[in-house]
């Protein structure tokens, strides 16, 4: 464990020094995420010009939900996004070899190697938006619920990363993962809307098989629902199930990997 922590500190040092070398890209990415945040906040502001409630939530409640998924997006962009982007390229070029022969878990190395220092600035901004939305909420919120909410947002980020990886793994067999990655990005839109707008079998899928609704919407519901216990159990059960599926799928993928130009 200590070895992995030391290794992660090395990743951080290397990522920050590299980010400082490419300063223009550093600022472009910060602005890009700021535009993303502004668009999402304004989108719901426009919606609330025409409705007082959305899926049972008031505007301040929806703003907390939006801030939640912005934090998840920023966490993902900071910790995982660059690494996920490179995985299909490494597989197709055979560069995965270098990670398989190292005396550390290839999954750890490939998931955490590249820390996006520029997105870290956006993570601070997203956290600021979250604090602002929580402070603007008129009803009292207990500290324990807020703390659980934050922990579930971190859990949501992990779950989001797992879903992303599961859509990337077919690259080990079909060799072109971009179409599937595009599907993941398209489906991510489900994460950006309150879960209770969906219904029927679609909702069932979104809270189990493709659990985008669990990522950000369930943690926000935890703040406002009277009985949040079942929500926590649901979120944790799906996360554990996805972790197990991921570990099996990863083992199968590595078995199918046949090195260069695979």
């Amino acid at each position: 464990m200590t070895r992995y922590l030391r290794l992660y500190l090395c990743f951080l040092r290397f990522s920050f020094s590299r980010a400082m070398e490419f300063r223009v890209d550093f600022f472009f990415r910060i602005f890009m995420d700021v535009v993303f945040y502004v668009v999402n906040i304004l989108f719901f502001k426009v919606i609330f010009l025409h409705s007082d409630l959305l899926a049972g939530w008031t505007e301040p409640q929806v703003m907390i939900f939006v801030a939640g998924f912005l934090v998840i997006d920023a966490l993902n962009m900071t910790v995982f996004s660059n690494n996920s982007w490179w995985l299909p390229i490494f597989v197709n070029r055979g560069d995965l070899d270098y990670y398989l022969v190292r005396p550390v878990s290839p999954f750890f190395f490939l998931s955490f190697r590249d820390f996006a220092a520029n997105s870290f600035v956006n993570l601070i901004m997203a956290a600021g938006i979250l604090v602002w939305s929580l402070m603007s909420y008129a009803e009292p919120l207990s500290w324990s619920r807020v703390a659980t909410f934050v922990l579930l947002l971190i859990n949501g980020t992990l779950l989001y990363h797992l879903i992303n990886l599961l859509t990337l793994l077919p690259v080990f067999w079909i060799h072109s993962g971009r179409g599937l990655q595009q599907i993941f990005w398209n489906l991510s839109k489900f994460m950006e809307r309150p879960d209770r707008i969906f219904r029927g079998w679609l909702r069932m899928i979104l809270v189990t098989v493709i659990p985008f609704s669990i990522v950000a919407s369930f943690p926000a519901r935890l703040l406002f629902d009277d009985n949040p216990g079942s929500l926590i159990v649901h979120i944790l059960a799906v996360t554990v199930a996805f972790s197990l599926v991921m570990s099996v799928a990863w083992a199968l993928a590595l078995r199918a990997y046949s090195s260069a130009s695979s």
Binding site: F22, V24, D25, F28, R29, F31, M32, V35
Partner: peptide
Amino acid sequence: WADNVWSLLVM
């Protein structure tokens, strides 16, 4: 001139 421009297009 810039090292990476994909973020401009995404914007």
